[in-house]
Design a protein around this nucleic acid. Structure first.
Lengths: 182, 182
DNA sequence: TATTGTTATACTCTATAACTATA
DNA sequence: TATAGTTATAGAGTATAACAATA
């Protein structure tokens, strides 16, 4: 348990991270905004999966996920294949074109970060990453506990380690969309 | 300079921080969303200031700042006083009511963080804060360099240390609103 | 003519709710 | 009846551009 002032400071800093994300987003191509990019990143990292699983990884509602997926599917970067196990479901898979697009945006993002963080050592960036991962985990615990292991992975271009489980869900009592009454 | 894989990891983690921020935002009162809350926090921390300075601290366009300020001014939390030095400008100042509102939202935010980060030590949260502050500074360097010291501070309820200078601005070559062509 | 701030418009992202199709 | 996914609608946040008032 930290001192209250530390929490206030953290709250303030988290708010400022928005500007960092906005700046980074500006290096992306016009037809591949952050939401679409994340779809490609996660499909590459975790392999083919269903809509619901992707929504869980992105920690957003499935309706929003559906729109992001429609965007990348329209451009041929992701294929929506029927799920042999469940007619209601669709399996999302990164296409070859999508894989090339992912390479492009990953390069752009990394170059921007390399420019901006040129005075950070590899070890320092590593420590920041660890902290952010732990922060995400602390917030995502309740939601992530229910996450099943990738059911349809393995066949895709899949990535590697599976330490990512998206990231949200409040302490446990505040259901999404519920705010303290004014 | 860090390894490219570290940058990719960081990009992925930053994207996940959005969920953390959304969760935190849900504890705020309906009539005081994040944008409005930040206005109160910054006016308390830096003291009375002009619109342009606030926009700089928030690292957003002044048109957006103007809307956030209108929101909190409508509720009596912030007063827009004429600037004796410049008829075009307005001095923003936190009111007594605004100060009480700030206390409320700070408590809500801190309590939410305390619940979520109950297994983080004070020192660990401190390290995370340092990292985030440095990250913000790395991104905000070029924009912050031009920031003048608070001109109209001192008189307000002003806070303390002035190590905050908002936070954004890309490496230097990418002007706001410019994306790599698809 | 340049600058401060406001307003109108548009875009991205998100959530809720209604709806279709399948289990 | 319950679940997977889609679509319509609404709200928060931001950026650009046009505008008013002042320097």
């Amino acid at each position: 348990m930290a001192r209250p002032s530390q929490y206030e400071e953290l709250a303030r800093l988290l708010s400022g991270i928005g500007a960092v994300k906005r700046d980074l987003a500006r290096v992306l191509p016009h037809d591949c905004p952050p939401g679409a990019s994340v779809v490609l990143v996660l499909l590459n990292r975790h392999g083919a999966m269903r809509m619901s699983r992707l929504a869980e990884l992105m920690a957003i509602d499935m309706s929003v996920t559906s729109r992001h997926v429609a965007h990348v599917a329209d451009r041929g970067w992701v294929a929506r294949e029927p799920d042999p196990c469940d007619g209601r479901s669709r399996i999302l898979r990164l296409t070859e074109t999508g894989s090339r697009q992912l390479t492009r945006i990953t390069d752009l993002y990394s170059q921007a970060l390399a420019r901006t963080l040129r005075d950070w050592s590899d070890e320092e960036v590593g420590r920041l990453n660890e902290m952010l991962a732990r922060l995400r985990d602390s917030f995502g615990d309740c939601r992530a506990r229910h996450a099943r292991p990738d059911e349809h992975a393995g066949t895709g271009p899949a990535g590697g380690n599976d330490d990512d489980h998206g990231g949200a869900g409040l302490p446990a009592r505040t259901p999404p969309g519920t705010r303290t009454p004014a």
